[in-house]
Amino acid sequence: MSRRNGRVLAFQAAFAWEISKTPLEELLQFSWVEAEKLERVGEAGLAFARLLLCGTLEHLPEIDAAIEANLARGDYSRVNRVDVAILRISVYALLYQKDIHPFITIDEAVCIAQDFSTDDSYKFVNAVLDNIRKSLPDGETGR
């Protein structure tokens, strides 16, 4: 459960970064999160959230290019910013976290979209991530 909570924190931090360009050092403190929730997330969850956020921002040009290349239609600049944050942390995981099965990453992204975005966003997030998964060297079969 700590990884799921870590993904949610990473998504929230990525969204905050996108909207306000809050400095990374400030985001990594997760100061907006209640102390009780941070305790539930635990050190492992916080470490995972920090890894996702740092990796996402470090590889942002490649991540954004992968997202843009896999949009079925439309302009990347018009994608809901919540969905962008979900996609970014998830594409980072697909491209760079080879120890996490792609279907887990996609399932977690869909759950976050269902919880935090518009009613149909989860379908969009699923489609984009599945297209990216299929473009990976072992995409059709997972890893």
Rank of each mutant, 00 (worst) to 15 (best):
L71F: 13
G55S: 03
I89D: 01
G42W: 00
I67T: 06
I63R: 00
R3W: 14
R4W: 11
D83C: 14
E26A: 13
L53D: 06
T56L: 06
T56E: 11
D75G: 05
L53P: 04
R7H: 04
Y122D: 04
L24T: 06
E34G: 09
G142F: 07
C111Q: 12
N126T: 07
A47D: 13
G6I: 08
I67C: 11
F11W: 15
D107A: 11
K37M: 10
I67G: 08
I89M: 07
A13N: 00
A16P: 03
D75P: 05
N70S: 08
Y96P: 03
G55R: 04
I100S: 06
A113N: 08
Q29A: 10
R88T: 01
L94C: 00
R143S: 12
S20I: 09
P102F: 07
N5M: 10
S117F: 06
L94I: 03
G6T: 08
N126Y: 15
P137I: 02
I86W: 12
K134T: 12
R3M: 12
L94R: 01
M1C: 02
L24V: 13
S135R: 13
A65G: 10
V82M: 11
L24G: 04
L53M: 04
K37L: 15
S135I: 10
L52H: 03
Q114M: 14
A93L: 01
E25G: 03
M1A: 13
L129W: 00
A16R: 11
I86K: 06
G139H: 11
I112R: 04
Y76T: 00
E18A: 12
K21V: 03
A127W: 05
S121L: 06
I112C: 09
